[in-house]
Design a protein around this nucleic acid. Structure first.
Lengths: 198, 198, 198, 198
DNA sequence: CATGAATGAGGATTCATTCAT
DNA sequence: CATGAATGAATCCTCATTCAT
């Protein structure tokens, strides 16, 4: 990175960045945003120096931004892959299920994302991503309303509610080790169906 | 505090502590949990040195704990005072409305509380308060179920959902300056009624 | 003290100073020279403010100096009162015995003195007192030599040795709670007699 | 040290640590234990910031412990190397001589050690080292007693006396610039011989 | 590319001391 | 005289970042 612009990263560079990003995710999720220092991240990544991180990232903010980008990309891929359904209601349910499945498989990703969002709200992406996320969900809801599947509600608000519920599930998973995610998912599906159906 | 162990606080001391606590709340809410250093808090409180904070609080954790205690006390008083209603559904609605009213009047209190909860999960109160909060709400829901006002759902889960929704409203208020809280409240009331009614 | 010179202290002033000095002695002896802060001393003295100490003493050094003066005065009085004997050897033995008795009765005084001497050697008195102490003891030894009771040795050196032995006893009493002072005293008497007799 | 936990020290690191340790020794010996702050030590070591010390040592206690270890290792090597003799009395005399020679050549080492021992009694090594030191000397004395070289005395007490005498010599060397160490040594040898011989 | 040593700003905290009441 | 609140310098320590090798 030093001299070269942002355009092309070598394979090695990409691998190193990914390695560091994942170490950062685990460190943030398993300890604390405040305690996720370069030293802690380098240690977890098996790096011998924090200089390595500074070499591959323009600064701490850049690393955090990349963490957000990575988590969101992984998350979106995962959710999109299993959100296919014939009806809007079906896609909404699939979205909820996919969210909770991703949470079960990649707890640290989402916990890290949540911590970054609320602890460092001026991250380049934090706010923007949340908004675009919400916009996509609002579109889904609107299409469901047009199809007569959903009752009449403010789609932006309802999208916000649904994402809040998802965030709440993440927070509770983070805080309570033995949280019953299966029951939660089914209760959540029922609640959201009741709240949205016509 | 220097010499005295801890018995009763003088009037002056209570005033100073309150002043510092409020400066801490505003600093956390308006910048960042990470950036809420003693220096930043002292500057906002108009203190001549960070030593003043250490003089009045046993340490940073003590200050943060007091912030949580203060916010929660104010919040609880406010909500309790306007949660009277004949039915469980009425009390639940009043709870939602009171939450959003408090948020409108004391935005910084709730934003600070939310940031502390997710950024510093080892705070004395953070986890405990969340759990006891949820338990009280679950009780309300259970009494509504017994009275036939609410459908059959897992009360602990539903209580978590409702608090998640509230937290989401706080987060969005924090992130979007012009967020329409009135619309949000009415939409939220409808959604929660739909999700809980029999 | 504020305005008035050093000449006359009122009775109350003297009492306060003595109270503070004794609290300082106990604090230094029971914890650490470094941890003997004004706050710790004031707490032990039952004072409500460290300002009280600053009011009665010109500064920390002044307090420490007064501690040294007090300990030494008490110590000297005690030792002189029981050092009467017909021979120099007798007076030397009485000196040793008196030292160890004082140590048994006023352990904290001597431990504090020792700590101050080695931790803060630039105290006004520390060095001077040690020297004058040694000089007096050397005089005693010289008179014993003239009387033919002691062999020929460098009296200044021997005085230093004897005081070193005494300091060692203090240090060991300070470090080992169950140290057997009685045995130590008798062994010490024998050793010193052997080392000095003709 | 930042990232690496602790395996082997690089050459550079060992050099830096040694440099800092020696700066600490000199600072403690030439001023005061209390005034041996990281700032003072860093200044003397020619470091650009106190952060450098924290980079190489886990904390102040770690530095102080290393100082003790270093001084004691140097001291022990020196003394052991010249304590060979046929008789216990010879080894005792050699011990005394070696002590005073080391003191002449490495005054600061011993002054620092003495100050640490009496000022910071909770140092990892302070008390333990003193006790093990004394035990070794007591063994020597006991073997001399068995060989009929020494009279009957409590070996633990006598060992304590001898170490007290050595500490006294250190203290006096520290306090009096022009102290006559040669005379002191010969007087001390005579005194100890008289006190121990049969 | 990678390493590890170095840097210096900033973190919380403690302390002796001052001063209005 | 006594109180306790206030001050600001100094403490140890952590951190992101830089740079020579």
């Amino acid at each position: 990175m030093a001299v070269r612009k942002r355009d092309a990263l070598t394979v090695t560079e990409q691998a190193r960045r990914a390695q560091i990003v994942h170490a950062a995710i685990d460190t943030i999720a398993e300890t604390d945003y405040a305690r996720a220092s370069f030293t802690a991240i380098a240690r977890r990544a098996g790096l011998s120096s924090t200089g390595m991180i500074s070499y591959h990232f323009a600064g701490k903010q850049d690393l955090i931004d990349e963490v957000m980008r990575t988590v969101l990309a992984d998350f979106t891929d995962f959710v999109v892959a299993r959100s296919a359904a014939d009806t809007a209601a079906g896609r909404l349910a699939a979205f909820i299920v996919a969210n909770n499945e991703f949470l079960r498989e990649h707890r640290n990703h989402l916990v890290a994302m949540l911590r970054i969002q609320t602890a460092a709200p001026d991250s380049e992406n934090a706010g923007i991503l949340a908004a675009s996320d919400r916009a996509k969900l609002a579109d889904l809801l609107a299409s469901g309303q047009r199809a007569g599947e959903f009752r009449d509600f403010d789609t932006d608000m309802m999208a916000g509610f649904i994402l809040s519920l998802r965030n709440g599930v993440i927070a509770r998973t983070a805080a309570e080790p033995g949280f019953d995610l299966a029951t939660c998912t089914s209760e959540l599906l029922t609640a959201i169906r009741s709240a949205t159906e016509v």
